[in-house]
Amino acid sequence: MEISNLPISPSLRSKLLAKGYTNLSSLSPLSPSILAQELSIQCEEAIEILRAIPHATTSKNAYTPHGIIPGAVTAWDMLSEEQMQRHISTGCNDLDTILGGGIHCKEVTEVGGVPGIGKTQLGIQLAVNVQIPVEYGGLGGKAVYIVDTEGSFMAERAYQIAEGCISDILDIFPSNSREFLSCKERLRANNFLDGIFYFRICSYTEQIAVINYLENFLTQNKDVKLVIIDSVTFHFRQDFDDLAQRTRVLGGLSLRLMKLSKTFNLAVVLLNQVTTKFTDGSFQLTLALGDSWSHSCTNRIILHWNGNERCAYIEKSPSLPSASAPYLVTGKGIRGINSNFKRARTMPS
């Protein structure tokens, strides 16, 4: 590794280079005091430089469980860990099936679609579903819901969806055994709403700030299992004039989100807008923020109209085949075409 890649301040770096230190190996045998003398800098600064030298080069023989590279895991371990994971149900069986069980933790999923298709509905539904207690097959986690100017989170709607979710749970688990009675207490719509942390942001600066701060917040609230950003794009589309800078800031943002999802074992769901793009001689719908952004999420789901049906289509996923599933937006939230919603609908009429 070269000195020029070392994360130290540019002035120190230029001093090192001026004295002929171009390689890390030339630095490692030095003691801080000698280095300080050589560069005519403070001893603290010299310590800083030596500390910045990557750990791996100084302690090559540190113990690692799998030998070769520290911090790595084998594919087999990953598989067994993946199988242990529970997924967040979307409320629609067909959609869960094509997603391989629901929204996955440790992954960043992007959801896009035209206005009014149900992005926010899906967001609220997930924020409610992530809180289904473990006894009822959920994750029993909490949700962070970050809303910008475009997002239209409505607490009343969250309440409706929570009630719908609870009534469905009670339909599936009618038993009154003691085990269930104990957690029935927790099945209140108010408790569900209490587990949704709502951040309202007004500019992209605040958006970056929230995402930076999340690491702190999640350390304090370890039971958060889902972070939803509704929508990720609005302020970036509105307020940025320098597109190159936008791309870099967005890149940093998506890396951070990816890291959050891995370290805290949670699912990140980004809701994105659509825009029109001119390709092959005609205008096509495509998700906003451009091509470089489209690399930054693990999965991408597009919600679209198929005739008179709402459909979800998996456009991108490392592990799932492209597939499409119809869904409904009902009074109780997102449901599948064949779920018991139809029964509920025909009853009152």
């Binding site: 994360p7 910045a52 962070v144 607490a155 009343e156 209490d194 587990g195 949704i196 709502y198 701060y213």
Partner: peptide, 30 residues
């Protein structure tokens, strides 16, 4: 700024915390 990465990180974390709007639970909102 001509400072090392660790101070940049801590500064950014502090700035982010100060800029981050306060959160509410959906219940409080309702």
């Amino acid at each position: 700024l001509d400072i090392d990465i660790a101070s940049v990180r801590s500064a950014v974390a502090r700035i982010s915390e100060a800029t981050c709007p306060p959160f509410q639970t959906a219940l409080a909102l309702m």
